[in-house]
């Protein structure tokens, strides 16, 4: 781009004679005085090049038109003052109305004091029916075309922990006798590789353990997707499609508001619900009761009881990611 834009300054026809006179070494005949033919050709070339450049750039028009100035200059979530944040939330609400025709409420939910979220999944109970996958899809306003969801369920042969033998595309009545089923979503690691690698701090770990993304700060380099050992992150390859009547209107800035295209998103433990004390959508949807969510700092919580009384394990423990999502078997 720089060459194309710099040539018009350099080779403009009005500055021609000086340019041509310095070039005695070229094989072309010397200029016949005044404006040389070479200069005219150069000028035409530059004009044509500039025109071609303009035409080539044409598709950018719609992108630039969609991008508002306020959106462009918006600062990082953590740097916004209360007033700025209020203005941002109001703007986002308007954008959802314009883009999707839906009336929504976008709040900013902050972590609760004295809370560190933990999630325990009972693999003896999970039967792989995928209701959690679907609940996540609806709750979090995922793209309808791709059945996007933060959860993937692996069907694994009993007797192995090797995911190489797993399969996510099974489509038969479940459970099969010789299989177990393992839902995987963001494990909200205490030592998250995805957060380390982000070059612009667009993703970070909050006090309650949730790893969040500022969708308006992410530059879309997808380094976090490469770094995550659990396939927990999703990129918006295009603007998600959500019909207005299917839009979940209860939204939060760091959670389930419609994500802009070109940015990364991930499971946020339904923070728009869980930071109001409510259970996450996947837990409520689970028909087998395999999911237990709660505050690990509360000694009376169910999740704490499981950590103390069940033989829990985490995925890929050897990587040292220290997940906040645990698995266990009853037997």
């Amino acid at each position: 781009m720089t060459a194309e834009s710099s040539t018009p300054n350099g080779g403009g026809p009005d500055s021609g004679p000086g340019a041509a006179s310095g070039n005695s070494a070229t094989s072309t005949p010397p200029p016949p005085g005044g404006i040389s033919r070479r200069t005219v050709v150069k000028g035409m070339g530059v004009t044509l090049g500039a025109a071609a450049f303009g035409i080539a750039a044409n598709p950018l028009k719609s992108f630039v038109e969609d991008l508002t100035f306020d959106e462009f200059i918006q600062r990082h979530y953590k740097e916004l003052t209360n007033d700025e944040l209020t203005a941002v939330l109001a703007r986002l609400k308007t954008e959802v109305k314009e883009d999707y025709g839906a009336d929504v409420e976008i709040k900013d939910h902050r972590p609760l004091k004295g809370v560190k979220f933990g999630y325990a999944i009972n693999l003896s109970l999970c039967n792989g029916n995928g209701k959690c996958v679907e609940a996540c899809h609806k709750e979090n306003n995922h793209d309808r075309a791709t059945n996007q969801s933060y959860i993937r369920v692996l069907e694994m042969p009993k007797g192995t922990m090797d995911m190489e033998k797993g399969n996510t595309t099974y489509n038969h009545a479940v459970p099969l006798k010789d299989k177990y089923y393992m839902p995987v979503q963001c494990l909200q690691c205490d030592n998250p590789p995805c957060v380390d690698v982000c070059p612009v701090q667009a993703t970070w770990k909050e006090a309650d353990g949730i790893v969040v993304v500022d969708y308006n700060w992410c530059i879309g380099c997808r380094y976090c997707e490469a770094a995550c050992p659990y396939h927990a992150r999703r990129f918006n390859w295009t603007t998600p499609e959500i019909p207005a009547d299917e839009m979940n209107p209860i939204q939060s800035y760091l959670a389930n508001r419609p994500r802009p295209k070109g940015t990364v998103e991930k499971c946020h433990f339904c923070l728009h619900k869980t930071r109001e004390g409510k259970a996450p959508a996947c837990m409520e949807a689970c028909p087998t009761g395999a999911r237990v969510f709660g505050n690990m700092l509360d000694p009376d919580s169910s999740v704490r009881w499981i950590l103390e009384n069940k033989r829990v394990f985490v995925l890929k423990e050897e990587l040292g990611t220290q997940p906040s999502l645990f698995y266990f078997f009853d037997e």
Binding site: G130, A145, Y170, N171, A173
Partner: peptide, 29 residues
Amino acid sequence: SFPAMQPTFKPKDRFLDAPSHESPDKDSA
């Protein structure tokens, strides 16, 4: 015993092989 279920919502990722349409098990109907 908890009844068998048919998964109704499967990922449709680009270039991921579509779910194979296996016939449901007879004894889990």
